[in-house]
Design a binder for these strands. Structure first.
Length: 437
RNA sequence: GGAGAGGUGCCGGAGUGGUUGAUCGGAGCGGUCUUGAAAACCGCAGGGCCUUCGCGCCCCGUGGGUUCGAAUCCCACCCUCUCCGCCA
């Protein structure tokens, strides 16, 4: 994942500005430029010598075929020339490789510049773009007088649908067990999301592996950026996926799309595994922050000129799901220092959870422009026979289940402890109300 | 897990040390012909690097090695296929 060298050379100021806006070190830009110049100098010199060596080698062959003695003086001279060039080439190549490694390292630490319309600043600068639905207060007015909405963990316990203790027993804390209607609710949500995406939004459904190899983890930047967030199966050198983004984006690694192939739009369900290292003690109750959760992810490959519009569209698709579930939410345009290293523009969708009176992040929709594509070498041909160019990649949750479940339980609970099932899920669940056990 | 075969360009498929970065076929693109299309014929046609654009350099699964010279020889690893074993 990196900015392009060509762009770095042509617009160093823009890249520098982008790094500063994201709170990163802009000096790396100059470091990279310097390394790039050195690398090109070394490469040029080495290439010249290689041409010499190739010529000498060819002369050996020509001389022998022309009747010269294979061990005669003429042939020996050509051989010597080739060997001499070879020695210098080896030295230059070694140096070039070292410089290139340094350059790569510098490039990797230069962030993707944010789009011009992204607010500059930290979380305070995030912009609420829109809000939808009624923000229910914790205190409600029921048929038998005032009542207090409960947090989802209390609702879930009364219904007997989430078993955190037994999850901790069989796997560990942060691995919830969904039971009965709770399990069916998971299945219903996954089916609802995928159904809308495939039948109405034109996505192709993908059911990818839940583990990836090191090359794939590197492709989307999990290695080295977020390595300690992933569960690793060391014996087989595999990583449990933290999101479907990883396997699905890597589907087209090192590929070239033909002119009429784009856009390619995938919707994929996977369980997601996250170690949540460094988040100990945060959101420990309920299912707001867990090590395993379920998510349907949207992954888009777009032509560069279409990616800006595609982000708005994709965000709209995620919002549509929340509306149909009748959950109040807001859309945040994330500011430069709160959006992440690799995103060019990002919207977060936060659902309102009246039981805990908090906004819960249930989707994050990002445009990476060509930043991810460069690292994974995902390209497209603008026209038949034309030179390949990098595609733009985007992805967004549509949606993440655990927090949606929390919001449903808190939004649709009733004073008697029952929970109304949102309309789109009723057919699968076979009921319109969940009753306390 | 055991045995065998193989990994070459968009696909198929040649090539086992010296203009082979790669024969050939198909698909593709451009053209001729045609009212149009098909067919036929001609031509173009892999990816990347370098502000030296050059009959320049690198790439035939990946990484090393041998050699003046490697797609071709050697070693390791990865992957695919077939058979056997095991198994949801």
């Amino acid at each position: 994942m990196s900015v392009g060298l060509q762009r770095l050379r042509e617009e160093p100021d823009l890249i520098r500005r982008g790094a500063l806006d994201k709170g990163e070190d802009a000096a790396l830009v100059d470091r990279a430029l310097e390394l790039d110049a050195r690398r090109r100098r070394l490469l040029g010199e080495a290439d010249g010598l290689k041409a010499e060596r190739n010529r000498a080698s060819k002369q050996v062959g020509d001389a022998i075929r022309g009747g010269a003695a294979p061990d005669g003086p003429r042939v020996a001279a050509f051989r010597a020339a080739s060997v001499a060039a070879g020695e210098r080439i080896a030295a230059l190549d070694a140096e070039a490789a070292a410089v290139e490694a340094e350059l790569e390292d510098a490039l990797l630490r230069i962030p993707n510049p944010a789009d011009p319309d992204v607010p500059v600043g930290d979380a305070d600068a995030n912009v609420v773009v829109r809000t939808w639905g009624d923000l229910l207060p914790r205190a409600g007015a029921g048929p038998d007088g005032p009542w207090e909405r409960k947090p989802h963990w209390d609702v879930a316990e009364a219904l007997g649908i989430i078993d955190l203790e037994r999850g901790a027993k069989v796997a560990g804390s942060g691995f919830p067990v969904y039971r009965g209607a709770g399990a069916a609710l998971q299945r219903a949500l996954i089916d609802f999301f995928l159904g809308v995406h495939t039948r109405e939004n034109g996505f192709t459904e993908i059911w990818p592996p839940a583990v990836v190899n090191a090359a794939s983890a590197r492709g989307t930047g999990q290695i080295p950026d977020k390595e300690d967030q992933m569960y690793v199966i060391t014996r087989d050198e595999l990583y449990l996926v933290p999101t479907a983004e990883v396997p699905v984006t890597n589907l087209h690694r090192d590929e070239i799309f033909e002119p009429d192939a784009l856009p390619v739009r995938y919707a994929a369900y996977t369980p997601c595994f996250r170690r949540e290292a460094g988040a100990a003690g945060k959101d420990t109750r309920g299912i707001l922050r867990v090590h395993q959760f379920d998510k349907v992810e949207m992954v888009l490959f777009e032509r560069p000129e279409a990616s800006g519009e595609a982000l708005e569209w994709m965000t709209g698709r995620a919002e549509d799901l929340l509306r149909r579930l009748g959950l109040a939410y807001r859309v945040l345009l994330m500011a430069t220092r709160d959006m992440g290293f690799v995103q060019a523009k990002k919207y977060d969708l936060e659902v309102w959870a009246p039981g805990v009176e908090r906004w819960l992040e249930v989707s994050s929709c990002s445009n990476f422009r060509d930043y991810q594509a460069r690292r994974m070498a995902i390209r497209y041909r603008p026209a038949p026979g034309a030179k390949p160019e990098l595609v733009h990649t985007l992805n967004g949750s549509g949606l993440a289940l655990a927090r949606v479940v929390a919001a449903i339980l808190e939004t649709y609970q009733r004073p008697d402890g029952s929970v109304v099932v949102p309309e789109p899920l009723r057919a699968t669940l076979g009921t319109d109300t969940l009753l306390p056990s």
